[in-house]
């Protein structure tokens, strides 16, 4: 199933997240990630949803979201016309014999080491969701202690903004 990225601009009301997430629960849609944050307008927040559903279901999701009073507009950012970024914090197990190899690989991914002990390295990576998944797959062999990911955030490239507005 292809992933769709929906950027949902909402009125910054208490309860708006319950309305949006509740819609997904009660209609049985699958969310891969959901991130919420403020925008240039303090009265408006943006919820970035990544969903794995068939195109006709994604259309249903957009229509159902538009029925929520606090939803201002929805932009479909699926595809190449938008930037997608995610932050991950990953703690990897290391030992004396493999530490050098681990640090070299971390460098390859342009990730930053946040903290390091004899047995663990904590890394921060800002990248596309795909690159983060690749990073995690590579370090799974060394052993991953824990992961925290923010979920995807996305904006359309200014040069491609025409045609991106669907809502």
């Amino acid at each position: 199933m292809t992933q769709s990225v929906l950027s949902v601009r909402v009125r910054n009301n208490a309860g708006v997240l319950s309305h949006v997430s509740g819609l997904f629960t009660r209609r049985g849609y699958n969310i891969d990630s959901l991130s919420v944050g403020v925008t240039e307008n303090p009265e408006v927040s943006v919820i970035t949803l990544v969903v794995s559903e068939a195109p006709e279901i994604v259309l249903q999701i957009e229509k159902q979201l538009k029925k929520l009073v606090d939803v201002l507009d929805i932009i479909d950012l699926t595809g190449e016309h938008s930037v997608k970024r995610e932050v991950a914090l990953v703690t990897i197990y290391v030992n004396k014999s493999n530490r050098h190899e681990v640090l070299t690989l971390i460098d390859v991914y342009e990730a930053h080491v946040i903290d390091i002990t004899d047995s663990e390295v904590m890394v921060e990576l800002l990248a596309t969701p795909r690159r983060i998944s690749s990073f995690i797959a590579v370090f799974a062999d060394f052993g991953i202690k824990e992961i925290a990911r923010t979920g995807t955030i996305s904006l359309a490239y200014p040069s491609s903004r025409k045609g991106a507005d669907k809502a």
Partner: peptide, 14 residues
């Protein structure tokens, strides 16, 4: 009550 009526109303407010 606000939380309870979210899925069964068009609009709700506290």
């Amino acid at each position: 009550t606000y939380g309870l009526t979210i899925p069964i109303t068009k609009y709700n407010a506290l």
